[in-house]
């Protein structure tokens, strides 16, 4: 009976951790996606400084959540995010034509990360 109670407790703990992980990743990734949209809006409206500030904020936000993600998500995906987020600021600053493709890629990686953690029929099977 003790073993069954222990197993039940472990399963509940794992369930709570999974829900926490799912919610955290989902929230942070949505924020990143909103941020990429905002950067592009500011950039296309001519507010380069605003876009730079937003890019710096995006990078800082990513750095903040990365350590939590490292415990929950495969490192390969995180390295991709690292690579793209660290480039956005410099692309805005240098008025690069690659900015749009990089922002799209970032959004795509973020959506992939979110889909991998959210239990949906497509991600389960």
């Amino acid at each position: 009976m003790t073993r069954m109670i222990m197993s039940g407790c472990i399963l509940v703990t794992l369930l709570v951790m999974s829900i926490f992980s799912c919610m955290t990743v989902d929230r942070n990734c949505r924020e990143i996606e909103q941020s990429t949209d905002k950067i592009w809006e500011l950039y296309t409206s001519g507010d380069v400084q605003g876009a730079k500030d937003e890019a710096a904020e995006l990078e800082a936000r990513w750095e903040k959540v990365r350590s939590t993600y490292a415990v929950l998500v495969n490192n390969g995906r995180l390295n991709e995010m690292d690579r793209v987020t660290s480039r956005i600021y410099y692309l805005v600053e240098n008025d690069s034509r690659e900015l749009h493709s990089e922002l799209t890629e970032l959004e795509h990686i973020s959506k992939g990360l979110r889909a991998g953690e959210t239990p949906k029929l497509t991600s389960i099977f």
Binding site: S7, G8, I10, L11, L14, S18, A70, V71, G76
Partner: peptide, 21 residues
């Protein structure tokens, strides 16, 4: 090492708990 330990721990613990239950 790219796979977090928790990703290995979760299925092991959950499988054993399912088995006990």
């Amino acid at each position: 090492v790219n796979i977090p330990v928790i990703v290995g721990v979760t299925p092991i613990l959950s499988l054993v708990c399912f088995e006990v239950l």
